[in-house]
Amino acid sequence: MTEQTQVAKAPVLAMPVTRTRTRHRGRLTLGRQILLQIICLLIAFTCLFPLLWVVSMALDPRNLSRPDGLNLIPQGASLDAFAKVIAQPTANPVTFWQLALNSLFIACLIAAISVGVGILAAYVFSRMRFTGRAFLMLAILAVLMLPAVATLAPLFTLLNRIQFGSFNLRNSLIGVTLAVVAGQLPFAIWNMKGYIDTIPRELEEAATVDGAGSFGVFRHVILPLSKPVIAVTAFFGFLAGWTEFYFSWAFLQAPKDWTLAMALNGMVGQYAANTKWSEFAAFAILVAVPVAVVYLFLQRYIISGLTVGGVKG
């Protein structure tokens, strides 16, 4: 993305000429400006509508069980729904913090393992030529093709057979973490390899001349330059854990192990006859806002990764 904008800005000498031309051509008539503004505002409304609706439900001081109309701007605001949902979001005697802590545990572990274990492998696949490289890369690609949900059966049965006394690996947060890492690690390697491929090799030569070995080059050249992709990959790992549903829902039993997504599942649909929608809305906001904020901060890197990786296939 940044590269492309640079390309667009590159011919500086030609700028004055095009500017006079486009002033003649590019100036919108008032009528067209208004028409385009209306279209843009309508699109903006569709983007914001669900978000406004959720926020207004959560803040509505009447704390409605079900909305009685389209109150996009509630009369006043109260945090009662938030207070209630933080104290006890589900029918189980578990607080929001307990659920959040469980999700945080899974999320951090997934991010740490997928990046920590994956980055060195990404470097090797990007820079070294060795026997079996093509085969291993193909194997990783093949795994990436298969959706994580489709590996539930073997992961459930294999993890379930690991039992120490009363501890069952399947019925634990560690088990869920391993199940997610199984799919997240190949993605992390692939994603980081794609980024390292774009780091110019000339940057390594100075280090090689100074006598650095392969690991020295990795540590002092590649690792510092890979910070953006490390941040993005860690964030994707975190996101996968923070909102993880299908493995947790299949694996975990004790209410103390429940995650945010499992609680959310109990707040909609057939299970939710007794859940106030104001509380559901407050809960949804509490889950979404932390990751949404981080996403917005990392957005530039994520999108440039998408376009770079996308074009390279």
Partner: peptide, 11 residues
């Protein structure tokens, strides 16, 4: 884009 899919689905 920045809202987690599970939140989008339930909302």
């Amino acid at each position: 884009v920045v809202i987690p899919p599970i939140i989008v689905a339930t909302v």
